[in-house]
Write a protein that binds this DNA or RNA. Structure first.
Lengths: 350, 350
DNA sequence: TTTATTTACGAAACCGTTTTCGGCATTGTT
DNA sequence: AACAATGCCGAAAACGGTTTCGTAAATAAA
């Protein structure tokens, strides 16, 4: 067990004070060029690396940010992490990843921990269960900048980076209707998540505008449990039952995939019998059977933008980021799953 | 700007010494039950959270691990992160994520930084460029446990968690041949990454065993640049040229996806004209057009196993993990993309 | 009653940096 | 020659916990 070398041993080795070493490392003007070189040289031969925790303690600065996600199963968050990492790396920051697993309790525990000086800022996408922002307020109270990305908490004043969910929901509805759908449905995973509400509201607005909205039959279908099999059966029932939808907008990728599986099993033709559009960042959509029309969020850009705002808040200490509100529009990729078919064409002509 | 409360203010508030507070928090037997309760109560009303860096500095323990990945674009690493996080969370550890972007220089910088006491252990999947393990050796020298997962560095003594690459490559080759392929090819992304070499070697062994291996025409095709378009053209050329393969094993998901795109564009029928098997963890493989046969790594389990070994190394200080070698077998999902077709059947019969 | 033991707590050193402040040369200014 | 300015460096006090060691009081053992 060889002795850990620190700034003191370096100082002793060079017959300098620790203060000098420390200053030499940050290229202070107080230190002569010659001395700096000596220090650097010795540091490299001794394999010295400054202890980040001592430094953080003294400077009250961690050079670390936290990213709190509901889960990383989805491709969206993978891409977002890339975007975040890209700018963190450039700034010389470290990034801690936390998973809340869609549980509010876990989210709260994580957020509270972030309040300890461990991080200089936090990026968060809230869980489906999150109904209050008190825990996040506490972060703000301690002057730790927070920015929501993708999944925000409404009615709470913080920086946010989201996509144009309402417009996309609207666009999806109009598109399906234009392609001949009479009874489109919206598959949602939450009745409280703003991201889902907005998409659903936009969708509903499209229906209303086209005179296809009926209060008796809510076009929004909720899939709130996490069990894949359960969801599969639920969709199967819906899609094979009477009054089944002839078009579906899936609020998340997973629901579209399960819908595809059901249709394959039940031999229901997409898009002839049912048209599908999904909110999704999956890059394999073009090779689905049939290729899947997607509303694709710029996940990387969202992550990037969010962290850029965060760093503004971190670096400019008396700069208020809580008014920052960035909307990064998604793009619609029209593919076969929502194509007009001869069957629907005829109906339209009739 | 309200004053940050620390253990000292807590002590003052309660007329106790800081030592007592500190001990109360770790439920020391030296502290009476009554005092502990007073401390906890006051801590909660004052919203006190101990400073982790002060603690880490003194204890020489960070309760943090590093995960170094080449990239997180692939679904594999998303799942692996989940597995890692699952056990880290249980142990009360924090996880830092680093991306090397397949660059050795970046990897080295990251690894060197990990040598500062910032982390108690590191999980790493090396880059394609990594040809030496000196930087990792330095970690070991400082008694920081390291475990390779998925992408290991061969000939270096550390804990490793991998999958049965050779066997899978062999199996894939045999499967294609059995289904009627006469000229199968293997799409690789690296000629040095053990993971690719092993898969390719297994593949080659399958060919040799079936008498289909020819030295004149190496069945291993390399795609070493990162440009999607470039790769697309390369594959297009290969697949439309003369002497094109009638079967492909893709060493990574991305190559299979691009191959699909090429085939769709060029109207080449899968599996009739070319059969495809991919090493992939993508969960949408069943709904590809056609559904994709995959050799699926248990990414979550690999991450989980790797971090469990790592924590063994962290917790039992004089326990040598460098001999740990876990192989988590992948599972083969046979789907339509590698199905025997009437065309190939006839050939076989002839 | 005396002595040993246990219980409950405090004083102070320590972890490895950063930062303030002060001081001694050396150089520049009148 | 006297003084100010500058360049270069060191001593020491933080930062906020943890840990060792000591000790007074309370209890148990003799």
């Amino acid at each position: 067990m060889k002795k850990k070398i620190n700034i003191k041993t370096l100082a002793a080795e060079l017959n300098l004070s620790v203060a000098t070493i420390s200053k030499a490392f940050k290229d202070s003007h107080e230190i002569s060029k010659a001395t700096k070189e000596r220090v650097l040289a010795m540091a490299s031969t001794l394999n010295y690396t400054p202890n980040p925790y001592a430094s953080s303690l003294r400077k009250r600065k961690s050079n670390t940010i936290a990213v709190i996600l509901p889960e990383v199963a989805d491709n969206f968050f993978s891409l977002a992490i890339n975007g975040i990492q890209a700018v963190a790396e450039k700034k010389g920051y470290h990034v801690l990843i936390y998973l809340s697993h869609e549980k509010f309790d876990i989210e709260k525990t994580i957020v509270d921990d972030c309040n300890s000086g461990r991080v200089d800022g936090v990026l968060i996408s809230i869980t489906k269960e999150t109904k209050t922002a008190e825990h996040i307020q506490k972060l703000q109270d301690e002057n730790i900048p927070v920015v929501f990305f993708d999944r925000e908490f409404e009615g709470f004043k913080t920086a946010r980076v989201v996509t144009n969910d309402y417009e996309c929901g609207y666009l999806a509805a109009k598109h399906l209707i234009e392609k001949g759908c009479k009874k489109p449905a919206f598959f949602s995973i939450s009745s409280s998540l703003p991201i889902c509400i907005k998409r659903a509201d936009g969708f509903k607005a499209g229906l209303i505008e086209s005179g296809l909205y009926s209060h008796k039959k809510d076009p929004i279908v909720y899939f709130t449990d996490f069990n894949q099999e359960e969801t599969f059966n639920q969709i199967k029932k819906l899609v094979t039952g009477k009054d089944r939808p002839d078009g579906v907008v899936a609020s998340v990728e997973k629901l579209a995939v399960i819908l595809y599986l059901v249709c394959h099993e039940k031999n229901i033709k997409i898009p002839e019998e049912i048209k599908v559009i999904a909110f999704s960042t999956v890059d394999t959509a073009p090779i689905f059977n049939p290729s899947l029309s997607t509303i694709t969020q710029s996940a990387f850009e969202i992550g990037k933008a969010a962290s850029e705002i965060l760093f503004k808040g971190i670096e400019k200490k008396n700069y208020d980021i809580t008014n920052e509100y960035v909307v990064i529009p998604s793009t619609f990729f029209e593919r076969k799953s929502s194509q007009q078919t001869s069957a629907s064409k005829e109906k339209k002509i009739k």
